[in-house]
Amino acid sequence: MDVKQNAARPRIPCRKRTESRKGVAIIIVLTFIIGTLAFAMAMFYFRKEVKQQNVLNVNFLQANFLTQAAVQHALVKCRILPQEAYDAGMALQGYCPLQAVIAVDDPDDLPDRGTSSSKAMQIFIGDCTSDPTKGIPWDSRIQNDFGIDPNDWKYEVASMSVIAAFTKPDEKLFVLTSQIIASGTVIEHRGGRGARSELMTKTIEVTRKIN
């Protein structure tokens, strides 16, 4: 009876599974492992990238503070030697440093500029550096206390230019507006990124009482 009933039922066509499934488990596992390894590699490189970004940030800070040291050095010199800073700027502008410019109401009435000389300014900023052969080196105890190589930490004032010169007649004051361009360079061995340099510009006023 059962046989009859089965014979009467229409057969549903289905694909006969003929392929062997031997070895499928290993293939699935290998695929999974390869995928996981790819994920791990991506994670590793991302981590490395973040690490490099941190090193870059620290390098920037180190070079930036060296640059600030250069600016500080130049400012101290301008503070303790104001007349010399002014005269060097005057020579750079082509004015005689031995006499004062007379205060004028109209800037057009300022005397003509003569022969410019940069030697005085080069002398003035020449020792604003941590280079021991030219300027004021880092304190020698730093190397002993921290194991820091002073040659890896350098700063200098690259230039000090006069960008404006004018008088304040009411105050009988002659004003030089000067731009200090300072640079700092650090070689940080951690991370092995080599030398990192930064530049900084500081604009100051140098004044002199005039007749």
């Binding site: 082509g94 003569g114 030697k119 005085a120």
Partner: peptide, 13 residues
Amino acid sequence: PDSTEGNNLDSKT
């Protein structure tokens, strides 16, 4: 004259 530098100060500095 009039504060204008007439010399080359390189040799006078």
